[in-house]
């Protein structure tokens, strides 16, 4: 499966269709079971009185990519924002239930959301680089967390992060130029570099490719595939082909319920729930 995936990445523009991906997966061994990163117990999210998520129970593995799919308004983005407590910033939003990260409740009083967000990075739907230089974009996180004491250390972190985000070769000669001047795909990879510069354990991605063209999307998927070796990745996506290509586990949400959660291969080849099947075959959603 690794080989198959890197193959198509080598030839951008020849992305395998969803059918081909599923065929590839069918021939690949099932993902081996790993440690659990997040345990979600009866997670509910309310916006004022409206309940957006109805008691989600789900374990997120420590490694690999977990995709959250479902029709618009199904609560997948809301669920993603539970993991770094970004819902805290929305007035009137309330989270109930338990989310354990490595066994510790991230909504307990001992957890400071500021430190949690340093451990759980996030990439948004629309690339949102700061209106600062490329260098300052990446250096911002390490600076506020005091991760680099000397200029030299900071330079190293910036370079390493940009290399890891696959952007270094494109921007190394113009680190002082504004990050907002990059193309959409480059901006999204800059934002990823910015996120990994603070050494998170988890990266949340909220439809990261929805504003990108197919070539930039392919590059981004290639990057996600590399990053999953080092980080636990949760990705919300509208593209089922993308979920099939990049993820090992897939969760299907519908109207605030977690309908089905299984190995990606199983979800796309042998869904147990009729709603999942209707959605992935394009009959609904």
């Amino acid at each position: 499966m690794e080989a198959a995936q890197t193959n198509y990445i080598g030839s951008i523009g020849l992305k395998p269709s969803m059918g081909e991906v599923i065929e590839m997966m069918a021939s690949a061994p099932a993902t081996e079971t790993t440690k659990t990163k997040f345990e979600c117990r009866d997670v509910e999210v309310f916006y004022s009185d409206k309940r957006a998520l109805h008691g989600i129970n789900m374990d997120v593995p420590d490694s690999g990519v977990t995709a959250l799919i479902g029709p618009s308004g199904c609560g997948k983005s809301t669920f993603l924002r539970v993991f770094n407590r970004m819902n805290d910033t929305i007035p009137n939003a309330r989270v109930a239930g338990q989310i354990l990260m490595d066994g510790q409740d991230i909504y307990s009083k001992d957890i400071d959301p500021v430190l949690l967000r340093a451990r759980v990075g996030m990439v948004f739907q629309k690339p949102n680089p700061f209106p600062k230089s490329i260098y300052d974009n990446v250096a911002y996180g390490p600076r506020i967390h005091g991760l680099a004491l000397r200029k030299n250390d900071l330079d190293n972190i910036v370079e390493k992060s940009l290399v890891r985000a696959g952007l270094w070769n494109e921007v190394k000669d113009r680190l002082k130029e504004p990050g907002t001047g990059l193309s959409g795909g480059q901006q999204q990879r800059l934002v990823i570099a910015r996120a990994i510069a603070v050494s998170p354990e988890v990266i949340l991605m909220d439809e990261p490719a929805s504003a990108l063209d197919p070539i930039a999307t392919a590059k981004l998927e290639e990057l996600i595939d590399e990053l999953k070796e080092k980080y636990c990745i949760l990705i919300v996506t509208h593209s089922m082909a993308q979920a099939a290509r990049v993820s090992q586990k897939t969760a299907f949400f519908h109207l605030g319920d977690l309908v089905e959660y299984d190995d990606t291969q199983t979800i796309f080849t042998n869904p147990k729930d009729q709603r999942t099947q209707d959605y992935i075959t394009g009959r609904t959603g």
């Binding site: 996030m122 996180g141 506020i144 996120a195």
Partner: peptide, 20 residues
């Protein structure tokens, strides 16, 4: 979205406001 970006990196609310 700029403020979301700063918060998601672990900036405190005050930092997000005064840095961005």
């Amino acid at each position: 979205s700029i403020i979301d970006g700063a918060l998601s990196l672990g900036a405190s609310h005050t930092q997000a406001v005064f840095h961005h």
